[in-house]
Design a protein around this nucleic acid. Structure first.
Length: 270
DNA sequence: CGACACACCTGGATGC
DNA sequence: TGCATCCAGGTGTGTC
């Protein structure tokens, strides 16, 4: 389920329960995630107090003085803080047991997620070539415009390219293109600089709003499965095939672009 | 380099 | 009810 707002909501949810606590034990029941969990992972993390919980793109970073656990939730992953005695379900692959009787539990039915250990996570292979954070200062319309010159790929897969900007997943790609009034199939190189400014603003706005919406469930995070309220009622086009466009009352269409479901309003988005 | 198809895996919804 | 089929919010990799 996780797009960037869900990952950020998870980060905020777990951080207060981890910071300042020592990881007494790492229990791994299934190492076969997208990449096998390295055999020395337990040894690396055991005994380390957690300094902070960060996020880079959709990767969660559990930071300690000795290094960081790099956790990706994939398509179906979630984290939760539960009492250490909680029985594990079939898809509960990893527990990080804390010194206070709680633990961080990672669950991932589809096992598209991943877990690595790195002494220097920013330089890790999975992170080092990533583009800027959409809510940070290095992302703006000028960057989208500059990187898109001469590119024939459709604008939707272009903004989902993590080398361009991270964290724009399939839902929010459709949503931000609707807000900016850009047809998702338009060639990236044929979008004007002005419209890229609007698109960058739309991406920031929709992600920030979704994080706020996720934040409303944070107080229930303890013991939950970590899946924040989904922001469903605020979606303009995603999942609304054949329903009326909220802006023009036309019909929202569903097409496939880059093998991904894509929703848009043909009359509002050109 | 850019564009694109494909791979990984399970569960839920849908249709017959 | 049972079974087949389709679809899913991610992203690294391989090929052309």
């Amino acid at each position: 389920m996780p797009e960037l707002p869900e990952v950020e909501t998870s980060r905020r949810g777990i951080e207060p329960y981890l910071v300042g606590h020592r990881i007494e034990k790492a229990e791994i029941r299934n190492r076969a995630l997208r990449w096998p969990i390295a055999r020395d992972f337990e040894r690396r993390i055991t005994g380390q107090p957690v300094d902070s919980v960060g996020r880079r793109a959709k990767y969660l970073l559990i930071n300690t003085a000795a290094g960081s656990a790099i956790l990706h939730l994939g398509m179906s992953g979630s984290v939760a803080i539960v009492p250490a005695s909680t029985p594990a379900g079939v898809h509960d692959h990893v527990d990080l047991v804390l010194d206070n009787g709680d633990m961080l539990r990672f669950r991932d039915p589809r096992r598209f997620g991943s877990l690595h250990w790195s002494k220097n996570p920013e330089q890790h292979k999975l992170l080092r070539d990533l583009g800027p954070e959409p809510l940070g200062n290095d992302f703006d319309g000028e960057r989208l415009w500059r990187l898109s010159r001469g590119r024939r790929v459709a604008v939707k897969p272009f903004i989902m390219n993590a080398a361009v900007v991270v964290g724009v997943g399939n839902i929010y790609a459709s949503e931000s293109l609707f807000i900016a009034g850009i047809n998702p199939r338009r060639q990236a190189g044929r979008v004007s600089r002005e419209r890229y400014e609007q698109l960058a603003n739309a991406i920031r706005e929709v992600l920030a709003r979704a994080i706020e919406a996720g934040g409303t469930t944070l107080r229930d995070f303890y013991g939950s499965d970590g899946e924040a309220g989904y922001f469903q009622q605020q979606l303009d086009v995603y999942g609304r095939e054949d329903e009326p466009c909220r802006r023009c009352n036309g019909t929202v269409r569903n097409i496939v672009l880059g093998q991904r479901a894509t929703y848009y309003c043909p009359s509002c988005q050109r």
